[in-house]
Structures are given as C-alpha cells and as structure tokens.
Design a protein around this nucleic acid. Structure first.
Length: 825
RNA sequence: GCCGAGGUGGCGGAAUUGGUAGACGCGCAUGGCUCAGGACCAUGUGGGUUAAGAGCCCGUGGGGGUUCGAGUCCCCCCCUCGGCACCA
C-alpha cells in the first residue's frame, strides 16, 4: 500500500492534462457547447484563498459539465490595465507592463497549482495592443453612432488617484480604489451614452431568471426609474431657449396645488437670461450666491445645507394661474429631470427645509385620513398618501387616484405630460492616467474632434513615459505621441491624451475569447453560437459596474449588427467572500491566507475540497486554519481504502445483488442514493452538501466488512463511483486512484455516473411515533407499509400505551414511511 | 429612511420544503496503537436533571398565532450584514 503524497501526483496530472490538451476547445464545433466563464482577474500581487474560491467553483463546474458530455469552453485572461500598475511605476520605478507581466506569471503559476483547467490558447491580456486595438475600435463605433461624446459636467475627482471616476466607482463618497474622499469638479470629459439604454437595461433584467435577485435589485436601484409628470410653468416677463415655458419634473403631481415656489439648478441655462433681465442689485445677489456655490468644495455623496436665492422672476402655476417666485437653489440637480422643480414644502422634506429657512409659504394639499395638518405647527413634511384638499376640483380624492387624474387632465389641457426619468447617468470613461487604452481621437485646429480612422488602429501607448501624478495624463508630456496630423485635412493636430476606464476593456472580453481574430474584434458567426455565456461566475462587487457596462456594450453591438443576442450572461453566480477575523482579506490588514503554503502542506485537492466544503458558495465564510484538517483526513481515508481495495485484485463484472450480504446490499443502495443526491447538489451549486454526502458515502464504505467476494465487488463499485463523483472537487487524487484501480486515464473521459431508481429505496424504514406531537418512540417497518399496519404497530408500543392510558384517543395521523402521531384529549 | 439577505451547539454549517432539529466536518473527551509525541483507529459529544443509564424537561434571535405536529407558514418586535439615498 502506497502513501498518499499529493505533491507527487498533482504535478503529474497537471502535466498530463496540459500535454493532452484536455481543456482546449475548437469553437468552430458548436455541438453540445457549454461556455463557463469566471471573471478574469486584475493581476495585482498574488492570489489569496478568497480569490481561489472563484476559480475552484468554476473548475468544479467545468469538470462536472465535461463529464456530462459537454464541450466546455473555459478561458482565462487578464484585466491588465489599471491604476495599481501605474502606481507601482511611480513608487518603485518599474514599468507598468513589467509589473503586470510579473504578476501574471505569479497568478498563472497559482492557477496551475490549483489544478484549474483553462484553454490557455485563448488567453487574453487587455493591455496588449492586439486586444486594446479592438477596445479602441468599439469606442470609435460608439463615437460614430453618437454614443461617445464630450461634455462639461460635474464629475467625480479623486484627489489621490488624480483622475476622474465614473459614478459607479464612487462608494460612500469615497474612491472605490483608494478610499480617498471624492470631490465634485466641473470638467469636460468623454462619456458613453449608457442612458440611451436605460429602459432596456431595466426591462431585460426580466430575461435573466437565473441571476441572483440581489444583483438585479441593485441594478434596478442604480438605473432608478421614476414615473411622473413634466409640468409646464409659464414664465412671467422672461424668455429663454424654450420660450416662456419652464418645465419641471415631479413624481408627485397630486401635490401640484401645494406648489408655493419653483427652484432651478445653479447650472440651469435660464439663469443666464435672468441675469440679463434683472436689475443690478438682484444680479449681484444672484452672482454672489453662484460664486459661493462654485467655490465650495463639493464632496461626493455629501448632503449640504440647503441654500438659494430669489431670482426676481415669477412663474405661473398652470393649474391655478397662481404667480409663484422662481428661486435658484443648491439642492436642485441640473443633471436630473429638467433641472428645475416645483417646490411643495408641505409634502416634500427638502422643500420644507428650504421653505423654513427662507420663510416661504407652506400650503397643505394632502391630509392624512382622520387628521388635520396645520402648516404653522408642522415639524416636517407629510410625504405619505392621503386625501387631497385645497386642490380645486380634485379636492376630496385619494391622492393616489388624484395623481392619475391630474396627469390625464394636464395632458388634455396641454399643460403637462407624463414622463419618465432615470437616475442612471452617462458613463464617464476618460481617465487622466497612462496605463489604459488611449482614446482614439485627434483634435485638429481646423476640423475639431476627429476620430482616428479604423485602419490606423491601434493607437499605441508609448513605452517611454515619465510617471508623475500631476492630474494630467502623462501622455501630454510625450511630444511624439501628442503631436500628429489630422486624418481629415492633414494639418497640425494633437492626440487625445486621456485613456479609457478599464471597465471599457472588460466590457467585451468574453466575446473575444471564443474567436481571437487578427482583423476584427471577433467573428460574429462563432460568437453568436457560443454566447450568451452559459455560466458566469464572479464576485458580487461587480453587481453594478462590470455587469451593467457589459450588458450595455452587448446591446450596442447588437444594434450595430455584430452580435444577435440581447444579454451576454445567461446565468450568473456570485460567490461570497472568504473573511478572516471577521474582515475581508487584504494586505493592509495583514489577514491574507495564501494558497501556496496550504498546497505545499496538504495539496491542491485538500484545499479545493475544503474551500467548497466550508459553506454555501454564495455566502461569506470565515476562514478556519484548523478545519482544513478534516478534508486532509477525508482524502487520506479515501486513498487508503482505495489502495486496500486495489490490493484485493477484484475481477471485473457487474455486482449481483442477490449474492450480497445485508451490509453489501445496504452499501450498494447508498451508492445509488449518493449519485442521485450529489448530482442534484451539483446542479444547485450546493458543493458543501455534495461533499458532505461524499464523506458519508466513504463512511458507509468503511462501515462494511466484506462477508464474501460479492461484497468486495460492491466495495469496488462504491469506491469507483465515489471517485467519479469526487473528481470535480479533487481532480488529481481521483485521476490517480482511477488509474491505480486499473482504468485508463483520464477520468474526465468517463461519463458522470447514473443511478437506478429501483435501488434508491431502503429495505427498512424507521417510523417515528409521537403522542400529541411529542416524540415518544420508534419502530422499523418495510417501505410503503399501509396505514393500518403502522397504526396498529404504533399503538402496540408500551410507551404509547403509557402515555395514552386512561385517555381517549381522538385521532391518529399516519404519514407514510415517516411517522405516526397519536392525539389524545 | 427605503430595498435586499440573514440570525440554528464551543465553531463552520445540515434539515427531503410542515413530519426524528443539529447531517457532514472542526474542536473537545475517553480508550487503543506508540518508549514518547505526532499521525492513525474506535467510541462519545445541544443544554438541564442524574453516580450513571433509562426517563423526563428545555431548546433553532424575542413575543404571539395557525396546526395533530413549526427551524420551516402568519403577525409584531430586536439584532447583524449588503445595497441605495438632496434622483424631485
């Protein structure tokens, strides 16, 4: 009997799989295809066991699907552009590519040592020109369709990373990457018009029943659809681009009769006209306010004191022709709705605070049922539904009903129309950094903004650059890059020096994996057959960012005819974090657990099995250094038993049930049951319980002392099936055992085992006996015994007689194959 | 504040969806093997009561309810985690 030495066998099988190309797939053959994808990593430093969970889940799935006869595509690559590489360049003087390349080597080694199988012929590295050339191509397509554009807008600026950030990259007012407080700046930047797809991105979430509800809810929140009414206020004495009309958006049109003033955003274009029209004193007052507003540092996600100033002009409420003042206020966003609001202080807390501060009138138009609100004593706005009052012919209606009626009435009268607003903003994609794909745009003195012609792609990122975090792209200081000629007129021109957000890189990589073409981003014919991805696996931290952007880009590519499906990821699984001492693993906290030492000590199979056994894969789990011993023991026990059985040199042949001992029959049935249950667990991603059942099966194997040759055959049958079922979790040791038991490698060529229905039933069933719902005893019975038999048997038990003595038996509940409950008075 | 997920032994976690709560594993205890330790093997392990066993009582965040029977269903409350939040 040989000892189990993982070190010896794991290297052997990793080499075997690689040499025989076990994970390579020809995508031109689309029969029985299964596209399994784990989110490609950003290559920073080394993997810890938390990252490993992702790849282990993915690999278990890949192997399981392969054994089910699917042609599984399992690619891997590197999300290789990004700030950490550039920061390393600034700090350590190492070139971002050098740093990235080294990290890729480390990660690759680690993935190999886990035994994770990938088609390395399809490796993607997003920072290499052969890839980012096509990222730039997508940008040009977006530009061509008017979906990539420049605008000046308030943007998120990270003072530490010295670059702008997308809204999605600001978490709690802080930079998602470095944690610094993000401030709002007015800047001209490149945006992608994701808002054009807002409705579809929202609606098509319904096409994704197998996405976690949590993720869909987050996306819905983020898109933030609101249905309401755009109301046209008439301006008194003043005109602007929309004539005398000032549209405002509200979701509470039922409160329109309570509007006592109107507020426009500081950036609202009407303000320019107002400044022209009003007298000097007023003008000064407004400008003072605007200057104060401009000079305050606005932190992202921070609520500021509501301030504003009366503009001197009036608007007319179209429902009652009332003249109300137009204010400008810092709490109104230009980016949302129409950039102007009607203020109903009695029924909106924000307006209420503003009205209190400036002593503006408060008028109640919604009364809670059975109560009377008094504006002079109200301490906060009443925002709930209620009965409408002071609302002309709508008074007396329930507010929810009034909302609908007023909207229709306004449309009839032409003083408003129903409208929809989204909280989603366009995606800011320019970054003032070096380590990203250059934006393929040229600024010509004569022709203005000119896209780089497709044939000139890629716009190469220059190699020799000085890395100084100045707040401007380092490319600005590379004259050979910066200065160019206009593709249109041939005149002097300058290149765009900002680079693309790395989320642009990752928004389409899953398409390229299936078809790595030289002269195009991918071959649509192949992509349309392999996509959508059958199973996508990754962290929930991308619930909004990457997953929303990818959905957007897919829809765009569909609209320009490059793909024919609306959603890129049919099924999504988000795994939970592995935490240590209650916190996310991170270098700064010093609580990272490296897979390397664990693999050295126990082998990859033990680590893989343990990580999957720890708990349900979608939930966070606490890492425990000691508990991994359990899996080490399990695999050793498995190995020893397999060796013992090997030494019996059992002849081939089917197990003959009639020749088995009672214990042998029991084990034989347990094997069938294990196949059934483990298969179901695999389908449901319940790897933890699948492994628990395999441990039980091994315990059952150990429980049988063979009475005859047939029993020994049953044991071999059991260990072979256990080997097959265990393979997705512990691929190396199962390959080795499979071979040592006299079979031809690879075990992956075997079909996943099947169970037979007739062997699932137990020979004997334990029936529980309750008296008044309390467990009092049990007995055994043959399966499917009839009710009367069970009733009789239960009543004959001495315990039951003890508890029912002198009492009337009211009812007896019999649940077949399960229990008898005797109910007394 | 709103939305979502969750609360089960000393610990990680199971529970056929209303039917033996605590599978499986860690840890712990006792015994075996060993010069010894480790490894390994066997047995036990929710709490209380008891010399021990049997027995009995309690027990799935708290309180109430439905039911022959509730971790599971309903109502109220508490706590933890995640997301959103001047979005009109």
């Amino acid at each position: 009997m040989e000892k189990y030495i993982p070190e010896k066998i794991e290297k052997k099988w990793q080499r075997f799989w690689e040499e025989k190309g076990y994970f390579e797939v020809d995508t031109r053959d689309t029969s029985r295809k299964f596209y399994a994808l784990v989110m490609f990593p950003y290559p920073s430093g080394t993997l810890h066991v938390g990252h490993c969970r992702n790849y282990i889940i993915g690999d278990a799935l890949v192997r399981y699907k392969k054994m089910q006869g699917f042609r599984v595509l399992s690619p891997m690559g590197w999300d290789a552009f990004g700030l950490p590489a550039e920061n390393a360049a600034i700090k350590e003087g190492i070139h971002p590519w050098e740093w990235t390349r080294k990290n890729i080597q480390v990660l690759k080694r680690q993935l190999h040592s886990l035994g994770a199988g990938y088609d390395w012929k399809r490796e993607i590295t997003s920072c290499l020109p052969e890839y980012y050339r096509w990222t730039q191509w997508i940008f040009l397509k977006l530009f061509e369709k008017g979906l990539a554009y420049r605008k000046e807008a308030p943007v998120n600026w990270c003072p530490s990373c010295k670059t702008v950030l997308a809204n999605e990259q600001v978490v709690d007012g802080k930079c998602e990457r470095c944690g610094a407080e993000v401030i709002i700046k007015e800047m001209e930047q490149w945006f992608l018009k994701i808002t054009q797809y807002a409705e579809e991105l929202l609606k098509d979430l319904d096409l994704l029943p197998n996405w976690p509800e949590k993720v869909k809810v987050m996306q819905r929140n983020w898109i933030g659809k609101s249905e309401g009414v755009e109301i046209y206020f008439r301006l008194k004495d003043i005109q602007w681009e929309k004539g005398k009309i000032l549209p405002v958006f509200t979701t509470r049109v039922d409160t329109i009769f309570g509007a006592t003033y109107v507020v426009i955003a500081p950036r609202h274009p009407l303000l320019k006209e107002i400044l022209k029209a009003v007298d000097e004193k007023k003008k000064k007052e407004i400008e003072e306010f605007l200057n104060r507003w401009r000079s305050t540092v606005k932190k992202a996600g921070e609520e500021v004191e509501k301030e504003g100033v009366f503009t001197g002009v009036y608007a007319i409420n179209p429902v009652n022709d009332e003249e109300i003042p137009v204010w400008v206020g810092n709490y109104v966003l230009y980016e949302y709705g129409t950039g102007a609001i009607m203020a109903v202080p009695a029924h909106d807390q924000r307006d209420f605070e503003f009205a209190k501060r400036y002593s503006l009138p408060i008028r109640v138009v919604i009364q809670p049922e059975g109560e009377t609100l008094d504006p002079s004593t109200m301490e906060c706005a009443y925002e709930e539904p209620g009965i409408m009052v002071n609302s002309g012919k709508f008074s007396g209606l329930k507010s929810e009903e009034g909302k609908k009626k007023i909207a229709l009435w306004m449309e009839e009268k032409g003083i408003g129309k129903r409208s929809v607003c989204y909280a989603l903003r366009d995606w800011l994609v320019s970054r003032q950094r070096y380590w990203g794909a250059p934006i393929p745009i040229i600024y010509c003195e004569k022709c203005g903004i000119v896209p780089v012609p497709e044939k000139d792609l890629p716009v190469l990122l220059p190699q020799n650059v000085e890395f100084l975090p100045t707040g401007e792209s380092p490319l600005k200081f590379v004259p050979e890059f910066l200065n160019t000629t206009c593709p249109k007129c041939g005149g002097k021109a300058k290149r765009e020096t900002d680079t693309l957000d790395t989320f642009v890189d990752s928004s389409w990589y899953y398409l390229r994996y299936v078809s790595l073409e030289k002269d195009k981003p991918f071959e649509p014919e192949v992509v349309n057959k392999w996509l959508p991805v059958d199973q996508y696996i990754g962290g929930v931290e991308h619930a909004i960012l990457h997953l929303l952007y990818s959905r957007f880009i897919t829809k765009f590519l569909r609209d320009i005819g490059w793909v024919n499906f609306p959603e890129p990821f049919q099924n999504l699984f988000t795994q939970g974090m592995v935490v240590k001492d209650g916190a996310k693993m991170s270098k700064s906290k010093g609580n990272v657990v490296s897979p390397d030492e664990l693999i050295e000590k126990y082998g990859a199979d033990t680590l893989r099995t343990y990580i999957l056994f720890m708990g349900p894969p979608e939930k966070d789990v606490e890492w425990d250094d000691r508990a991994i011993e359990g899996e080490w023991r399990f695999l050793n026990r498995y190995w020893r038993k397999a060796e013992e059985i090997r030494e019996w040199e059992i002849k081939e042949g089917e197990v003959k049930i009639e020749n088995l001992s009672e214990g042998g029959r029991k084990l034989f049935r347990r094997v069938h049951r294990a196949i059934k249950e483990v298969t179901q667990d695999m389908e449901d991603f319940r790897f933890n319980t699948a492994i628990a059942k395999l441990m039980e099966l091994l315990n059952d194997i150990y429980a049988l002392t063979p009475k005859n040759e047939e029993d020994r055959k049953a044991l071999k049958f059991a260990i072979l099936n256990l080997t097959l079922l265990l393979h997705p979790f512990a691929p190396h040791v199962t390959e080795e055992v499979w071979e040592r038991l006299g079979n031809k490698p690879s075990i992956m060529d075997q079909l996943w085992p099947r169970y037979e229905e007739k062997y699932l039933a137990e020979e004997e069933i334990t029936v529980v006996v309750q008296v008044n719902g309390k467990l009092r005893g049990k007995f055994t019975a043959p399966p499917d015994a009839d009710q009367d038999f069970l009733k009789e048997k239960a009543l004959s038990l001495p315990v039951v007689q003890k508890y029912t003595e002198g009492k009337e038996i009211k009812r007896i509940i019999v649940v077949r194959n399960r229990l008898v409950n005797v109910v007394t008075e």
